[in-house]
Every structure is written in structure tokens, then in C-alpha cells.
């Protein structure tokens, strides 16, 4: 089963991404709206890949990205910032940014690519 953790604090966007990915066969963990929630979910089960918003209710997503990196889980950023690393730190450098608003094909293709390599 292809699993994805969604970390997004804007509830409409979170539901949109969840329903969209489920429609295309993904099993969704979350969505988590906070760093605390996301880290808790990672303690339960590791997803194949994660989709991260950069600014959450309780701060920048950095600790989540670091936890994912430490556990070798690849991640994708979905951010309206042109350079998410300026907000979320160096750990986001090199992570693909699928943008916000998020175009469906680009999102699906990027996730597929990350889990297949």
C-alpha cells in the first residue's frame, strides 16, 4: 500500500489533498495540522513519503522534516513560498516543491517518483 503523511494546517487544503490522494489510491496518514501531531503520527507508523506545508500552527515544519530525514522517509513540500528553505531551514533544500495552489498531475507524479526510487 502506498502511504503518505500529509502535514497541513489549513483545514480546507488538508481535506482537499487527503481526498485527492485517496482517490488515486494513496492511504493517507493525518492530515496533521501541527508539528506535535505530525511527530506523534511518525511514532506510530512510518509512511512511504510525506507531503509538507512549511508554516504550521505551532511553527515551521523543520522538526518534522528533520525527523523524516533521520528515518529515511522522503518528503515533498507544498508551499506558496518560492524558496521554502528560507522559512523552513536547510533541511528543505533539495526537496521538491509542488507549489500551492497544488496542481494535481504534478503532485501525483512527484509522489510516485519519490516512492519508486
Amino acid at each position: 500500500m502506498r502511504t503518505v503523511l500529509i502535514v497541513e494546517d489549513e483545514f480546507l487544503i488538508a481535506i482537499d489533498l487527503k481526498l485527492l490522494l485517496e482517490r488515486f489510491g494513496w492511504s493517507v496518514f493525518g492530515p496533521a495540522a501541527t508539528i506535535v501531531e505530525a511527530l506523534k503520527l511518525l511514532d506510530v507508523e512510518l509512511p512511504a513519503v510525506a507531503l509538507l506545508d512549511v508554516t504550521l500552527k505551532d511553527g515551521a515544519v523543520t522538526p518534522v522534516a528533520e525527523a523524516l530525514r533521520a528515518r529515511n522517509v522522503p518528503f515533498v513540500v507544498a508551499s506558496a513560498y518560492d524558496r521554502p528553505e528560507l522559512v523552513g531551514g536547510d533541511v528543505l533544500i533539495g526537496a521538491p516543491n509542488v507549489g500551492k495552489p497544488t496542481e494535481q498531475r504534478r503532485l501525483l507524479a512527484t509522489l510516485e517518483q519519490l516512492v519508486s526510487c
Binding site: E10, D16, L19, A80, Y81, Q104
Partner: peptide, 18 residues
């Protein structure tokens, strides 16, 4: 402002898509 605008567009996108 640009960031907020894109966020707002993402909300509209969510409504349109869902």
C-alpha cells in the same frame, strides 16, 4: 501579500476540486 494570495487561491482550488 503574494504568499497570502496564493494561499487564498489554494482554498478556492480546494473548493473547485472537491
Amino acid at each position: 501579500l503574494r504568499h497570502r494570495m496564493k494561499n487564498m487561491l489554494a482554498l478556492v482550488q480546494a473548493l473547485a476540486r472537491q
